[in-house]
Computed example of a mutant assay.
Amino acid sequence: MEMKLLAMILPMWACSICLFSSVLVARPDTTVSNIFSSGFVAVKEPISQFSAKMEAQSPGNSEVRIVHHQDLNKKILIALVVTPTILGVLLLFFLCFWIYRLKKLKDSNGKSEQNFDSGRGLSLSPMMERFNSLRTTGKKDSVAVIEYQYLEVATNNFRENNVLGEGGRGRVYKARFNEKFLAAVKRIDDRGQDAEREFENELNWLTKIRHQNIISLLGYCIHNETRFLVYEMMQNGSLEDQLHGPTHGSDLTWHLRMKIAVDVARGLEHLHEHCSPPLVHRDLKSSNILLDSNFNAKLSDFGLAVTGGTQSKNVKLSGTLGYVAPEYLLEGKPMLHLTET
């Protein structure tokens, strides 16, 4: 915008200089210094002998010459006053126009953040207010109930280009609630009893657990027989994607790998030692370890999690084979401490 403004002002400035120069050149028989020194009085000293003779022979011509000088001085004075005034007015006009455009652009960006939609005229502002209120309070057992229409708008009607991944129960979509706030929406299309139980289990645990290495649940939705879980966005996907995706682990330095291992250990320690009752994940694998923009690792997918200790002796054996403790598969109960294994 600044370059366009300069591109418009510079030609006008050049034209004004040319106009002022043409006024000065229009008087061939005197210099600029003589013009300013003469003022509105007649020129007493002739330029040449010929002009002196003409003045002596024809007094009338001298009067005409004086009038000519006076008119020329007036024109120069007017040009000196009018030209800067015009330039000042033009500069002020373009400055006001530039400020107006900036303000209009800022207002339009603000409106787009508040009213981001998919052409249906549905504002997402109420949804953002709920998320912000939950962040502010930070209370456990609090999660937003999201209407299905808001999820349709945020995911652009669940378009294919918004798919982040696909699991055993359904797809995960990228949801944009405004220009700066993104989330991940897991859509569970499975209508079986196991899917229903895992949905309730995940909702139950993640509304209670708050930890820096546990995925945050922002809200949920039940629409007919389809269920949705809304999580915080993890920009670097899963550990499985990093290790076996297009980069084949090239982004994971040795330092980052150690950091991820420590983050996972801290998440498990919180589940085993600080949750009441203690919790066993039962599905800990690379696809359920998610990474944010700074490669901070967080545990996800608590659909198969169960409480540990004596209360879980009769729990149904479940989990992903190869990602649960051998003693759990053998004895039918989760063991949390090394002394119990």
Rank of each mutant, 00 (worst) to 15 (best):
N61H: 15
M258F: 04
M3N: 06
S133R: 02
L336S: 04
S21Y: 00
K298F: 01
M128G: 10
N236K: 12
S125C: 07
L87C: 11
N224C: 05
G138H: 01
G192L: 08
R159K: 04
A56N: 14
E160Q: 10
L19H: 03
N156P: 12
L124Y: 00
H337P: 12
I215Y: 02
K180P: 08
G192Q: 07
K106G: 08
A183F: 03
K75T: 14
P59D: 09
H337K: 15
S48W: 08
N294T: 11
K333R: 12
K111V: 04
T341A: 04
M54T: 07
R191M: 04
W13I: 07
I222V: 04
H223R: 03
D263C: 02
V172A: 05
K333P: 11
S287H: 02
S133V: 00
E232P: 02
I47H: 13
A184W: 01
F181R: 11
S250T: 10
S142F: 05
L80N: 13
E240S: 10
T31P: 14
Y148R: 05
L329M: 10
L6T: 01
L330S: 00
H281W: 03
F20K: 09
C275S: 04
L317M: 15
E166I: 00
T85Q: 05
E113F: 05
F36R: 15
Y173S: 08
L24W: 15
C275T: 00
I146V: 12
L5R: 13
S216G: 00
S125G: 06
K316M: 11
P126M: 09
S48P: 12
T247M: 04
L151I: 03
P277R: 05
A265M: 07
V145H: 11
G322D: 14
K316I: 09
L6M: 09
T339L: 13
E179L: 07
L77K: 09
M12Y: 01
I215Q: 01
K104C: 08
K74V: 14
T85S: 06
R135F: 06
K75D: 07
L95G: 11
I35N: 10
L105R: 00
S33C: 11
T85H: 01
F40E: 15
L317E: 13
R257G: 10
E166N: 07
L268E: 02
F20A: 11
D263V: 01
D141L: 05
T31I: 08
Y100R: 01
V32C: 11
G170P: 08
S37V: 15
I78R: 10
E240I: 12
D292Q: 05
Y220W: 00
V172Q: 04
R27V: 07
E340S: 10
G165F: 04
Y173A: 10
L122M: 13
I35G: 02
W205P: 01
P11F: 01
T136G: 02
E202G: 08
G319R: 08
E331D: 06
S216L: 04
G237K: 03
E166P: 15
G39Q: 09
C221K: 03
R176S: 03
E273S: 09
V262I: 12
